[in-house]
Computed example of a mutant assay.
Amino acid sequence: MFKGLREDVNSVFERDPAARNILEIIFCYPGLHALWIYRIAHWFWIRQFYFLGRFTSHVGRFLTGVEIHPGAKIGRKFFIDHGMGVVIGETAEIGDNVTLYHGVTLGGVTWDKVKRHPTLEDNVVIGSGAKILGPFTVGKGAKIGSNSVVVKAVPENATVVGIPGRMVMEQKKEEGRADLQHGQLPDPEAKAISCLFDQIRELERKYDALAREHEQLKSLINTPPRVPASS
């Protein structure tokens, strides 16, 4: 148990440059508190003490602003940065070394009692405000941009942005700590608009060339023929 607690604290040190010391992490990180409360709730849940599991989870939601259903499955080195507004559904599955920023939702799209929440494999990073909705898999090393809405499977090492989420790049596997450079993510809508502007400029260039040719032909047609002078 203590090994797991140390691992959780070290995960904060690895992924939050604002962390200064162990006491600050233990007492001032609601994402870490939510994870520890979840583990207690999950212990009750898997032993079929469902009410105690839900009640413990509810207390954790009240204290931290993070709602993790006790039935969810969460791996090692899980980190929630800032925490407020995070929602993780009952059938969600989260691998090792996963990072969620505030406002993330791992939600479902059906009321049926089936697997209805997403599965996040190892080393996934989800940007703030992103919504991952449905019983599909987000592959290892994938990155989801802030405020994206993802409703279908994401390949390994892919980066997804937008509403609905679109894959904008697929990168090689990277070792080391997880990261998500929000300012460096491409914008597919802006790229499409830029392409349209390029096409418009090309059409304008062709139109101007045709207009000049038309004026030249018109000038030739309207010019009276030169009559040779009589000798």
Rank of each mutant, 00 (worst) to 15 (best):
V154F: 13
T119D: 08
T105I: 12
R205N: 11
L203Q: 06
L106I: 07
V104R: 00
W43N: 10
L32T: 01
F13I: 04
T119N: 07
A211S: 10
K152T: 04
Q199C: 04
A34D: 13
E67V: 09
A158M: 09
I88T: 13
W36V: 02
K152D: 05
G183L: 13
K131G: 08
A41H: 05
V161A: 05
C195R: 12
K3S: 10
V109E: 04
H117W: 10
V87P: 11
V59L: 15
E189G: 07
F136E: 01
Y101T: 01
K218G: 13
Q48A: 07
E156P: 02
T64Y: 06
E202T: 03
F49T: 02
I68K: 07
F27Q: 01
R20L: 15
E93G: 06
R76D: 15
P135K: 11
F62D: 00
L106T: 09
T99I: 14
F197H: 13
G127L: 06
A72P: 11
L52K: 10
V59D: 03
G141T: 02
I37F: 09
A158Q: 03
H182F: 05
G129H: 03
D81A: 07
G107E: 06
K73G: 08
P155A: 11
S231C: 01
E7M: 07
Q181Y: 05
M169S: 13
V98I: 11
Y29F: 15
A211R: 02
H102L: 03
L32I: 06
A192I: 02
H117T: 10
Q184I: 01
A192L: 10
W43K: 14
E204F: 03
A178Y: 02
I193Y: 14
V59M: 11
V125H: 11
D187W: 10
I26M: 14
F13S: 03
K191R: 06
N147P: 02
E189Y: 15
K131W: 00
E189T: 09
D187S: 15
S11K: 03
M169Y: 01
F13W: 08
Y207T: 08
E213V: 00
H58D: 04
V124W: 12
S128V: 04
F49Y: 15
H82P: 03
V98Q: 09
E189M: 11
R205F: 02
G83K: 02
G89F: 04
G165C: 13
P225A: 06
E213S: 10
A229S: 15
C195K: 12
H42G: 08
I37N: 04
L106M: 15
G107N: 08
N123Y: 15
D112M: 05
E215V: 06
L5S: 10
V87T: 10
L63P: 05
Y29A: 07
K131D: 05
I88C: 08
G75N: 06
G83E: 03
L120T: 00
G75H: 02
V104H: 02
V151Q: 01
V114R: 07
Q171H: 13
V59H: 06
E90S: 07
F62M: 10
K206L: 10
G129Q: 01
D179G: 14
G4I: 00
L35N: 03
H42T: 05
V125S: 13
K113Q: 07
K172T: 14
Q171P: 05
N222D: 14
V149P: 04
R54E: 09
N147M: 12
I37T: 14
